[in-house]
Amino acid sequence: MAVHVQDYLRMHKMPHIWCPGCGTGIALGAVVRAIHNVGYSRDEVIVITGIGCSARTNAIIDFNTFQTTHGRALSFATGFKLTRPEMKVVVITGDGDGAGIGGNHLIHTCRRNIDITTILINNSIYGMTGGQYSPLTPRGSYATTAPYGTVEPSFDICKLAEGAGATYVGRATAYHVTLLEQLVTKALKHEGFSLVEAITQCPIGYGRRNKMKSPTEMLKWQREHAVNVKAAAGMSPEQLEGKFLIGEFVNKTAPEYTKLYQKLIEDAQSKGAK
């Protein structure tokens, strides 16, 4: 049965702060529907954020919520999950928050394979501060701090998460919102650390400096440049030139941190440390 996302919103906190045409709300809608799909109660879900546009998601959704310092949401979430392993912990972060200032925490949270579901909303820019380039801004893009175009290459955050040990990794876009909802649903059910990158549009901070003035143009760009990982398997490197992959990249089983630590506690209590 279809869900009204509105049922999960703190309507008394409206209006939200995002700009017209922003993709953050689309990603948040997918997350809320995914939580509904999995069937978690509002009380057992906690959503933790950091700083930036992505961090403003959790003030308006009716779960247990708190916002933290810039880039540190995963570290707060790690402490929380360790003391409350029965809770379903979701972190919503962004490209600056999660891949920039919080990049090291992301790597190590992947490595620990702790049962936290992270949605990294990648709008290619620092939106809250007005359009500075991030570690996920494509090379050559313009930003207020890259008036001549960025010379830096960007991360593939999904590959980085995979390399660091995340056991569920996927990517979708605001345009491919149904896929996004599916990936987040699977990520929530997955035991271990999961990361879903949601590529979204920031028409004000990014688009208007990069020849995509309207949200529609940006959504079209997502449609035209995304290739599903399954389809990509049958395509040549030339055909994939300039494209990016979406879909499920990693889905594997590995021991989960809080379960391992629970075992450690039981061992310490029965046998004592070495």
Binding site: I48, F66, T68, T69, R72, S75, F76, A77, T78, G79, F80, K81, L82, T83, R84, M87, N104, H105, I107, H108
Partner: peptide
Amino acid sequence: MEDEIASMAAVIGASIGG
């Protein structure tokens, strides 16, 4: 933790957990 920033964050996260 991976650093002192994360350590402080994790302690606060745990305290929020009760």
